[in-house]
Design a protein around this nucleic acid. Structure first.
Length: 126
DNA sequence: ATGGTGACCACTC
DNA sequence: AGAGTGGCCACCA
């Protein structure tokens, strides 16, 4: 058995993280989703904060994996469509650049037509 | 072990 | 209608 006081895998993510990464990868290009939607989809409901945390870890992980499929964290924005996490990207413009590269218009760090591009895993995937 | 923080959201007054 | 507080999950000191 293992030691309950010591983490089995410090570098490995927890169930929640893995789940968040999975859902984020399901987001189609040109589409955006919100932390709350993912949190709700996972059953966390109000654990949106952890979702954002997982996204950050996902980005760092993507750099580490490099060979694996990165997590399109740039497709995840807050409920208002704002690129709140752009500060945590490798570059402050990486998130916006990537979104625009996919056809998503970003103005003032906010996704234009956010509700139109909004991709809800609960509804789309269901 | 406890407290505080964090890419947030929802409810209540 | 606007503002304030709690809640959720995970990590760090």
């Amino acid at each position: 058995m293992k030691k309950p006081t010591a983490p089995a895998a410090p570098s490995e993510e927890r169930n929640f993280f893995q789940d968040v990464h999975q859902v984020t990868r399901l987001v189609p290009p040109g589409r955006v989703t919100s932390y709350g939607a993912i949190a709700r989809y996972l059953g966390s409901g109000r654990g949106a904060r952890t979702v954002g945390y997982a996204l950050m870890a996902a980005n760092l992980d993507a750099l580490t994996l490099q060979n694996e499929e990165p997590v399109p964290a740039h497709r995840v924005v807050n409920r208002l469509g704002q690129l709140t996490g752009l500060h945590h990207f490798p570059t402050p413009t990486a998130m916006q650049e990537r979104l625009e590269a996919e056809g998503v218009r970003v103005e003032d760090d906010t996704v234009v037509d956010f509700e139109k591009l909004y991709w809800d895993p609960n509804k789309e995937l269901e």
